[in-house]
Design a protein around this nucleic acid. Structure first.
Length: 586
RNA sequence: GCGCUCGUAGCUCAAUCGGAUAGAGCAACGGCCUUCUAAGCCGUAGGUUGCAGGUUCGAUUCCUGCCGGGCGCGCCA
């Protein structure tokens, strides 16, 4: 429809140019927009405002000339000039209601672009360290990333969802030691748990299972484990030095195979838990990418060699540095320490090289807002390796603050007393979680009210939207109970009988859905879709409250039910993209 | 201190690449239940878009400075 209006305007402009009323050299970009205010018609163009200067003409006067030169169109009822020179187009009801048939014809595909018709994109999200269960902060990244991925897919892109598993590094060794110590406790040792160890109860569970599998084969005496270790923090020592010493002791006593057994017991249990948690949250990945595999495959060395060859590395005091300042970073970064160990950043360089080598046209990283300082150096590395850093998009997600009504829910990562995503889902349900998490702009701080998310009232947007969907289903049930049948063909033929403002508003809102999806996808803004669904549900409820569906007039009844079906379809399509169910009854 | 980010009604938030009179919901106030779901409906009021400049036909949006909140600034991951 917008194209049609743009064509009309183009024809008018051509006429004016031919008549010598306009200079031939004009910017050719004709904008046609949905109107925000329906008193401004259905569609509007600012063409007279943008051309006024080049045409050396008062915008309103120019608008009048354009209007006069517009060819007649069956779809346009009237045009109006308003404000500083906008041209407003009023459409006939048949063109407004045409969308209803389109929705019913296309069903679940309505609003979606042809699958895999666009570029190939990877979306990496969550990627939390497998050292403990996901907490509510990860939940927002999960919901946001999953929805962005689904939206991009709906927009026709070929999408691959990936989780980067940080299964290398010191934190993982701390996890392994934590598991081992709990295991030793179960074997009868009496010990002080390290201040820097993982305190959560889940560690005991993992240790318990390890004991069942391994028996006493990993046990060592109190003496062997703790002799000659530096003091831990409570004893006036350094907790970092202490835990590192414990890691070394574990590796010595257990040997390569034994240590791996403990290590993997922790990793497998936690990763399994995360995977299950996300699965229950409606999130599936195509790839779980292991950080360790980058070392084993030689990708880390390869990446460093390439940087070395290109002259972007230098040594200083035994450390190997990447000259990221040459690419806009604040300071250079160490990639390999004097002790030979590569840094986390080195893995990340290799990881991004690997991503680009897999041939993605676009790479999207969803990170917590605390990582924003990291963007520059990663882009620097990508550029230094010879790839296009603009192909990487990083979207940051702010943390959510939980409220129970007015009261803020305290969270502390220490001592494992944080609120897990699983706990949150169990309390308010996955649907409400998925919706609430994406209802605000990602980079916006958000307040997540548990009471609101649980409430069954119109104040709760999830309930309100799902209720609209269920309401249509309910009406169809009532229809059936009354011994009536929906004649869809008659309903579609009789759409012109829908003559109330509410019905027209609804159809207009339905018509905006495809564009809403495009905007939400291309800008990585799921909240646009969430807000749209609220508006659509609101329009539907308003209409429903003012008009009875199950009426004597068969033709009008079928027309209203036909509109309802279209509303239900779009609600279901949108909810599905947000990972929220569309229930048939509440 | 430097960098990024945010600041919109009392509260939580919108505002479609710079568009028209800045919109919703909650709370407040005033009305509504013999109804396909009152777990609701209708209406009223509520604003110097943090402040001050700039860019232009037009700025919540872009630029500069200031004020205020958040985050980051490790050979941690």
């Amino acid at each position: 429809m917008k194209e049609h209006i743009a064509d009309l305007i183009q024809t008018a402009l051509n006429t004016l140019i031919a008549a010598g009323n306009l200079p031939a050299e004009l910017p050719s970009n004709i904008q046609v927009e949905n109107t925000r205010d329906k008193t401004h018609g259905d569609l509007a163009s600012n063409i007279a405002l943008t051309l006024a200067k080049a045409a050396r003409c008062n915008p309103r006067l120019l608008a009048e000339q354009i209007c006069a030169a517009l060819p007649t169109s069956a779809q346009v009822v009237k045009t109006e000039i308003a404000g500083p020179g906008f041209i407003n187009f009023f459409l006939n009801s048949a063109s407004v209601y045409a969308v209803i048939e389109q929705v019913l014809d296309q069903g679940a595909d309505f609003g979606r672009s042809a699958p895999n018709s666009g570029p190939r994109v990877q979306v990496e999200f969550v990627s939390a360290n497998p050292t403990g269960p996901l907490h509510v902060g990860h939940g927002r990244g999960a919901a946001y990333g999953a929805t962005v991925a689904d939206l991009l897919e709906a927009a026709g892109l070929e999408v691959e969802r990936e989780y980067y598993v940080n299964d290398a590094g010191r934190q993982m060794n701390i996890l392994a030691v934590s598991v081992w110590l709990r295991y030793l406790e179960e074997q009868g040792l009496d010990l002080d748990f390290p201040a820097n160890g993982y305190q959560g109860h889940y560690i005991r569970d993992i240790a318990h299972r390890l004991a069942q599998d391994a028996g006493a084969s990993l046990a060592h005496s109190q003496e062997a484990v703790f002799s000659d270790l530096p003091a831990d923090e409570p004893q006036g020592g350094d907790k970092e030095l202490y835990i590192d010493a414990l890691i070394e002791r574990a590796q010595t006593l257990l040997g390569e195979a034994g240590y791996q057994q403990v290590f993997n017991a922790g990793l497998d249990a936690i990763l399994g838990d995360i995977r299950e948690d996300l699965g229950e949250f409606g999130i599936e990945y195509q790839t779980w990418f292991s950080e360790r595999s980058l070392t084993h495959s030689g990708d880390v060395d390869l990446a460093l060699n390439i940087l070395q060859e290109k002259g972007h590395l230098y040594e200083e005091e035994g450390n190997l540095w990447f000259r990221s300042t040459a690419f806009g970073d604040d300071k250079d970064r160490v990639v390999r320490r004097a002790n030979g160990q590569t840094t986390y950043f080195a893995s990340d360089i290799a990881y991004h090289m690997n991503k680009f080598d897999r041939g993605f046209d676009q790479v999207v990283n969803i990170w917590g807002a605390d990582h924003h300082g990291y963007i520059t150096r990663v882009k620097a590395a990508i550029a230094a390796l010879g790839y296009d850093p603009d192909k990487l998009t990083v979207r940051l997600v702010q943390f959510a603050i939980l409220y129970r009504g007015e009261e803020r829910v305290q969270m502390s990562t220490r001592s494992g007393s944080f609120v897990t995503l699983r706990e949150l889902r169990e309390e308010v349900g996955s649907d409400a979680c998925r919706f609430f998490y994406v209802t605000r702009k990602a980079e916006q701080h958000m307040d997540f009210d548990l009471e609101l998310a649980k409430s069954q009232s119109k104040d709760n947007p999830v309930y309100y939207i799902q209720y609209a969907h269920a309401r249509v289903c309910s009406v169809l049930r009532k229809l059936d109970e009354a011994g009536l049948v929906l004649d869809l063909a008659q309903g579609r033929a009789a759409l012109a009988r829908l003559d109330s403002e509410h019905e027209k508003d609804l159809a207009v809102t339905l018509g905006k859905y495809p564009e809403c999806l495009q905007n939400a996808a291309l800008n990585y803004e799921p909240h646009v879709l969430a807000n749209y669904l609220k508006d659509l549900a609101s329009d539907f409820h308003t209409w429903y409250n003012g008009h009875k569906m199950l009426i004597e007039d068969t033709e009008l009844r079928n027309a209203r039910l036909t509109l309802s079906l279209a509303v239900r379809q779009v609600l279901a399509n949108g909810l599905n993209l947000l990972g929220v169910s569309a229930p048939e009854q509440m």
